[in-house]
Amino acid sequence: MANPNAVSGASTFKIISTIARNTFREAVRDRVLYNLVIFVLLITASAIFLGELTAGHEARTIVNLGLGAMLVFGAFISIFVGVSLVSKEIERRTIYAIFSKPIGRGEFIVGKYLGLCLTLLVNVLVMGIGVSLAILAVGGGSLALTIWGAIALLYLELAILTAVAILFSSFSSPALSALLTFFVFIIGNFTQSLKDFALTIGSSSGKLFFDVLYIILPNLSFYSFRTNAAHGELPSAALLGGAFLYAMVYIGILLTVTILIFKRRNFK
């Protein structure tokens, strides 16, 4: 019963990249990138009006405001698009036709994740260029270039947040997943406080609890370089390398857990 026309299927790399590109296309067609228009308007308005309010510190203020806005816009996409990435496929039953093809559930999750990372990359790049141009417009000079170290760290933070969102969405509803991811985002930016708090607690069980939280939750404060960037500082190679390595390991663990959960799911 061998079929001479039988197809062997695409390679894992090809499947993942195809799914990732389609996820990016979905984001574009669902107008996710429209947020860039709002961002550009915000930055342009800031460049025009801030000069009068912050005499002599326009460029520094634009860096602070720009990077802050980039984080908010990016986190918004990571959380809300991230939690619906897989749940929407299940809810709309598009997953039926996908899994009748020779595609593993792991390939699907990784492809969807990378697709959203690609969307975030385009967002961050365009927003970064917008901030750089605004800095140049107010005569900020070299700051327009040095902020890119902070932007690289910010992107890694968003990549971690997206993996958190996908993990939650693999076992809970989109609304609850968004809420949980938002909590992780907030607490993750204050993990050092968790550690400090654990030291001040008398009870050993309380100390253990906050220590475990400190280890489990992503240390997102590691990726905050806004204030330094506003002073023209560049992150050291060691900081960038460490941040990259931490992000890769953390994302790898999160995606592995997501895949293990997703592999056990029944699609009713």
Partner: peptide
């Protein structure tokens, strides 16, 4: 064995596909 799916086809009931495509 999902690799076997390269030799089969499936049309679900009331099929739903990516409507942006």
């Amino acid at each position: 064995d999902f690799k076997m799916h390269s030799r089969i086809g499936y049309c679900p009931e009331n099929p739903y596909f990516y409507d942006y495509l």
